[in-house]
Design a protein around this nucleic acid. Structure first.
Lengths: 233, 233
DNA sequence: CCAACCAGATTGGCCTTACCAATTTGGTAG
DNA sequence: CTACCAAATTGGTAAGGCCAATCTGGTTGG
């Protein structure tokens, strides 16, 4: 975790803790820089990032103002928080899980209709690598993400791919935990293979059903996590 | 357009024009700053933004490297380009239109199931303001976006709302052109009202059908635009 | 003679400090 | 109430020091 990133990591709790409302003005650049013990340059870099994520707005010669983060913020603001180790709220987890299902079900339908030979080759390559990883007892997390993203890529919509990719970045560390239980990898792999077969057959309904069942397993893991968290909180 | 933003606007064509491949190293900070006639501080700010949009990667003590922008880039990278006045490619337009339909059809189904009184009140307030704007002969663009976003908000998924919001930011200026033709506003408004009635009735199928028909109008506008563009190019 | 290794220089990002310009803002005087 | 002025604040520049990684060339040991 380099200094620049951790500056944002310190800036976010500061904003939250001061209970600032959207529209409120933050302290001046120099004041913030002094408060966090960094130079103005370093602080301006962090603010520029928060601005592109639509968390704050900079009005020239006036100040830095907080925006309506929840509604207008970028999806990547959540990605960044996750990368900084700030856990998602329970609501956010439920929403991410719901939206991920919507996106992947639609994506796999499109993929079943549009996939070409090159798409299948990419998918099979990921599956082959998955088999090797499982055989070696390594963590399947990266191959799992690669498979799902390859499916979305087969849908032939790169904007779609960008959105889904954000979701996988978001849950990256959590996915490693998920596959730390070695029993999950073979089951997941078998479901991936079944899904691939539906794509080969160009059968959208079967592909959607396969994805739906596959996602149920991941989703139940998330719900268990929330249960456990709410008990310990 | 402030200087910081336009620096990014100059940086993007520079990267594209040099035909850099993903993984290639960009010139050093000092060199880039000199080449663009800005200080290192200003340049670092711009690079930090490109990094959060996953267009470049900064490796400490090594350099700035180009990433696989098309596949791994953030959705907000496209939003930023649109805000800078760089038109979307034809492929991007088709993909955005397709994904927007997928998202809004699902969102309106959820909204029909989950909307509460407060959601309806918000929607009705937007519709009332829309009627006023139409009566005054003003541009309906902002109210149109507000209506669609209010529908997504009624779906009760703020992550969903963030994603759809990016799409509306993306097409902001284009939407103003669309409603510059005053004939479009009353039709659009009537369709919005019909959609609202389906939400009131908690009828997901009717709501989805209403949204589907409504979107067809916007989509045909986009397709005509692409036709016109390909003829003049 | 050759290969391995170690030390120093170079490169490049990271951060700070100091300074000036331009604009907004708020108060004050007429 | 208007015009103006001064303070506050951001925007941007310049120069320099620090640290880590990498390259290079010479030296040393086999």
């Amino acid at each position: 975790m380099d200094e620049r990133t951790s500056l944002i990591g310190r800036l976010l709790p500061f904003i939250a803790h001061r209970r600032l409302e959207p529209g409120d003005r933050l302290p001046s650049e120099r004041e913030l820089a002094e408060r966090f013990g960094v130079s103005r340059g370093a602080l301006r870099e962090a603010i520029a990032v928060l601005e592109t994520l639509r968390m704050v707005e900079r009005r020239p010669n006036s100040g830095i103002y907080l925006r309506a983060v929840d509604k207008q913020g970028s999806l990547d603001a959540i990605v960044l928080q996750a990368e900084l180790g700030i856990p998602l709220t329970e609501t956010e987890v439920r929403e991410v899980v719901e939206l991920r299902r919507i996106l992947e079900l639609q994506a796999v339908r499109l993929a079943a209709e549009r996939r070409d030979a090159a798409d299948l080759a990419r998918i099979d390559q990921v599956l082959a690598e998955s088999a090797r990883v499982i055989g070696a007892g390594e963590n399947l997390a990266d191959q799992d993400a690669a498979f799902h993203l390859a499916v979305v890529e087969a849908a032939g919509n790169h904007v779609f791919l960008r959105v889904v990719n954000s979701f996988y970045l978001l849950s990256r560390t959590r996915r490693r935990h998920y596959f730390a239980d070695g029993q999950r990898a073979p089951l997941s792999h078998a479901q991936h293979v079944a899904l691939r077969d539906a794509l080969v057959a160009r059968d959208p309904d079967r592909a959607e059903a396969a994805m739906g069942g596959h996602l149920r397993g991941v989703e139940s893991y998330w719900m268990e996590l929330l249960q456990r968290r709410s008990r310990t909180d």
